[in-house]
Design a binder for these strands. Structure first.
Length: 441
RNA sequence: GCCCCUGUCGUCUAGCCAGGACUAGGACAUCGCCCUUUCAAGGCGGCAACACGGGUUCAAAUCCCGUCGGGGGCGCCA
């Protein structure tokens, strides 16, 4: 044992130590993200440690590129880890050493160059699962287990046990898909003379149709949701709600609140379906709650990704625009289509709205009259525009809406959106007049 | 096939462990109303569930058994 690991064991006696152990063979999946999240919440809630272990024993499938992506996505989610990650690929000697101990004790045997663990039949392995309660399995169901493969690399279950013990892990929270690995691992702890940690198996996330969450259900990687314009706090919030209930007053949670309220004992035992609708709602709620200046860089990313030029707009201008639309978007990406008319003159025009509000001669005439009034305005502010608009309506004996609706169409190409007068102020007199005049002809 | 986990509104769930206060509560979605220049946001209201069948009990969503359904596992993958 190294000095560091010895120290870890000491600390482990007093402190919760959990880990997330991704395998760098792909992107960070929503299910893995949730596993990482709950481990992290537990560590932060208890003041314990959250470690990262990279399970890169399969050298042909592992790729540093995947690892980079996983670490980036974890950081994006706000999940930070303690110390440096541990790489299993660098610890083969340790696994072999432990396996040879078992070999020497007659608990394991050689077979075709591999070291196999002998499973004693006729026993029942029982343990108290944190989320499921008592789970028991007959050893008759378990065949002899590979410890070290013939190529010298450790098997998943064995490396896992050696490392969890070595890192002094106190609680293992992982997906239900590991339930059947646990009795095997308990057998290893026993054979090595080690006390097993506490285990908790969380139900897997399912797709909307109840089958395994997969690509055909849409996004399954954290990265896709990031690009789509979801806030990390919203994704975290939804992942949390899929398996843990913070209480009716606490459905919309900031990560700090989640850390404060989280209790491992409340983890749900039932598999949940991923609900994109609820995620979208949560995202909208988190966007509304976020300070506009904090939204600014994120919105800029979306605009750049859409190839829109916002350099001409003053920073203040963009802030006002975000203010106008932050209660209207479900994702950051939606901002782009919602505000198209602010960034280009050849914006899309809704066909229905055109027929209803722009094609009529009366509308054209009214739009023209409104343009005249706005041109004469001293100050081009929302308040002044509104006053002019309402006065014109009154003088003409019209309802204000018969002016407002066509004007909104002329100016934005949409029947929905922010308040017309605020939009006009932000657009500026020149563009507003051009568009109104264009529609009045 | 064998083993393991799991079943409350369409979805996420509260209630279950310690049976009665449950006419089963909340949230998302949906529908309607209010507010309103539209759309959102916000407010108010509607629809909607204890998988099924047996027990135990004065009393079952809650305890027990079975059936059915869903998921996972049974690799020298992780």
């Amino acid at each position: 044992m190294t000095g560091w690991a010895g120290c870890a064991i000491l600390v482990g006696k007093f402190m919760v130590t959990v880990r997330f152990a991704p395998s760098p063979t792909g992107y960070l999946h929503l299910g893995s993200a949730r596993t990482a999240l709950f481990n992290w919440l537990y560590a932060r809630h208890t003041g314990g440690r959250f470690l990262l272990r990279i399970e890169d024993t399969d050298r042909t499938r592992s790729d540093p590129k995947f690892l980079e992506g996983i670490l980036r996505d974890l950081r994006w989610l706000g999940i930070d880890w303690d110390g440096e990650p541990v790489y299993q690929s660098q610890r083969f000697a340790l696994y072999r050493q432990e396996a040879e101990k078992l070999l020497a004790q007659g608990k394991a045997y050689m077979d075709g160059g591999a070291i196999l663990f002998k499973v004693e039949k006729g026993r029942t392995i029982e343990y108290e699962d944190i989320v499921h309660g008592k789970i028991s399995v007959a050893t008759d169901e378990i065949k002899d287990q590979v410890l070290i493969k013939s190529d010298g690399s450790p098997s998943y279950n064995f490396a896992c046990v050696v490392d969890d013990a070595n890192l002094a892990i106190t609680h293992i929270l992982r997906g239900d898909d590991h339930i059947s690995n646990t009795p095997k691992q308990i057998l290893f702890y026993e054979a090595l003379g080690l006390a097993p940690p506490r285990f908790g198996h969380m139900p897997l996330i399912l797709g909307p149709d109840g089958s395994k969450l997969s690509k055909r259900h849409g996004g399954v990687s954290v990265e896709e949701y990031r690009k789509e314009g979801f806030l990390p706090e919203a994704l975290v919030n939804h992942l949390i709600l899929l398996g843990w209930f913070p209480g009716e007053e606490h459905e919309i949670l900031a990560p700090e609140e989640a850390v404060r309220l989280f209790d491992i004992a409340d983890l749900n035992a039932v598999q949940a379906k991923f609900d994109i609708q609820k995620l979208r709602w949560l995202n909208a709620e988190h966007i509304m709650r976020k300070k506009t200046e904090d939204l600014l860089p994120l919105i800029k990313e979306q605009l750049s990704a859409a190839g829109l030029d916002f350099a001409g707009l003053g920073g203040d201008h963009l802030l006002k625009l975000i203010d106008l639309y932050k209660v209207r978007m479900k994702t950051l990406r939606e901002f782009v289509s919602l505000t198209e008319c602010f960034f280009r003159d050849d914006f899309n025009v809704e066909e229905e709205g055109r027929k209803k509000y722009l094609d009529k001669a009366e509308s054209k005439e009214n739009i023209g009259l409104l343009a005249d009034r706005l041109e004469a305005l001293e100050e081009f502010t929302a308040a002044a525009i509104e006053e002019a608009c309402r006065r014109l309506a009154e003088e003409k004996g019209l309802k204000p809406v018969s002016l407002i609706h066509p004007a909104r169409m002329a100016v934005s190409g949409r029947t929905s959106g922010a308040g017309l007068f605020e939009m006009m102020e932000l657009l500026g007199r020149e563009k507003v007049l051009t568009r109104l005049r264009g529609a009045s002809r």
